[in-house]
Design a protein around this nucleic acid. Structure first.
Lengths: 243, 243
DNA sequence: TATAGTTGTCTATATCAATAGACATTTAAA
DNA sequence: TTTAAATGTCTATTGATATAGACAACTATA
């Protein structure tokens, strides 16, 4: 596996190499030693100068993924990637299950507004009808995993922001508002580069990739109760669809 | 929407801006005029020099998304994004449906080899058992959409490469080999930066994002018949999961 | 036929990214 | 205690990235 990095692409070599090493760590490539290969070996592997590799490792150290120790080598500090099953019963908190000790959903802001075309299509209402919008960040063991913008029909779920702030969970908030069960109707998945706001909110390495889901949840009668656009740090998560 | 680009991140400004303009085009932001805003307007919007915007537009022109015309402006040539439904009956060719006129699957190479741990887990066989590996590229209307590496149990589907070369379709090839129906068991989705080989095969802008799916197909008795790792050009596709 | 608005081209300069080499410092093992 | 192997630091140089300004060339329209 040599010569996998590209020059003159607008993406710096040190960033490409950081991405590859992060991926290799996540895939368990260095599990035997618990360490990243020596800088000189990586430099040879990628066909670059040792200093370029050092820039990549410095970036990973900044992310808290590795720790370089003079004389010893570069130790792997963290290698997990959270898995999100996407099913009829998709729930953020429960989906994480035993992969993290603590799950929290934090409400950043909310407002009542009129549904635009996209939200109206998701919630099957008319454009201009009132909806509640919530901006949230979800964390696993204190580490940000995703930002989400969620819309709810204002009439039925006006109390959503308050309930979510208390329970830190969409499922529990729905329960408080009299909706004991709901199902995932559709999920769309795309990927883009993170913008400034999400980079800050998710504590990402700049230039990182986001996995975007656009999801519709309905009650058991098929009436949409939530439309949400979630932005996940691509290097911390993966999705699983079981059929 | 100003100041959304980040400096000193290892991702060049012109690349970040190209990504944002591509996204805006795809979202229909410029549908009224069918043109990208003037370079000076974009430069002001993103808070960069006009020359930097020009680099971004040159990259998009290279991709065939826009065409700059001196004196007039920058015309949008293409804005579609293919949608792939992921269901029990996920099939590449049928899934595209009416979104493209012509679908082709091209066999790049194939070989018989021993299953490694990942493939063995997917196909529910033992590591070291013989499998057929195929490298393919799939195109919609001549435009590359995804690269895939697929593995099949060698005993049951030894004729796969030959059948695929003729039919250009996994479904039809399975049918020729006596498997009239199959179902998608699991799909994993992640995202990474494209490497050199995929950039070339998919005719991507360098540094582009890939959506990765790792999928297991089984026959109707639940016996795995295919394990495939597919790499999609993230700016050309989206996935939809219907529950 | 002017004119405003747009893209195309050129020069110059500053900063970031990458390479190259030398040597110091620390760790672990012989 | 020596030595090999690893990371840390420094200087110097080259090429890519970004800014700045001026002006040419083209298009559509008043």
């Amino acid at each position: 596996m040599a010569g996998q990095v590209q020059r003159q692409t607008g993406v710096a070599l040190w960033r490409q190499i950081a991405d590859r090493i992060r991926q290799a760590i996540s895939a368990g490539a260095y599990d035997e030693t618990g360490m990243v290969p020596p800088e000189t070996a990586l430099a040879q592997q990628f066909g670059v100068n040792r200093h370029t590799v050092r820039s990549a490792i410095a970036a990973l150290a900044q992310e808290g993924i590795v720790r370089a120790v003079q004389g010893r080598g570069t130790l792997i500090e963290r290698k997990e990637r959270l898995n999100f099953p996407i099913t009829k019963r998709t729930r953020f908190t429960a989906g994480i299950g035993e992969q993290a000790r603590e799950m929290r959903g934090l409400l950043l802001s909310y407002s009542e507004e009129k549904a635009d075309a996209e939200v109206a299509r998701g919630l099957k209402i008319r454009s201009g009808e009132p909806v509640i919008r919530m901006e949230t960040v979800r964390k696993a063991d204190g580490r940000p995993v995703s930002c989400a913008t969620a819309w709810f029909p204002a009439g039925r779920f006006g109390g959503m922001p308050d309930a979510y702030k208390r329970t830190e969970s969409i499922t529990k908030a729905f329960a408080e508002l009299g909706l004991s069960d709901y199902v995932r109707a559709t999920t769309e998945i795309t990927a883009i580069h993170a913008d400034e706001a999400d980079t800050a909110a998710l504590e990402l390495a700049p230039g990182a990739i986001l996995l975007i889901t656009k999801a519709v949840n309905t009650d058991l009668e098929g009436v949409p109760v939530q439309y949400a656009v979630s932005r996940f740090a691509a290097d911390r998560v993966q999705f699983t669809i079981e059929n």
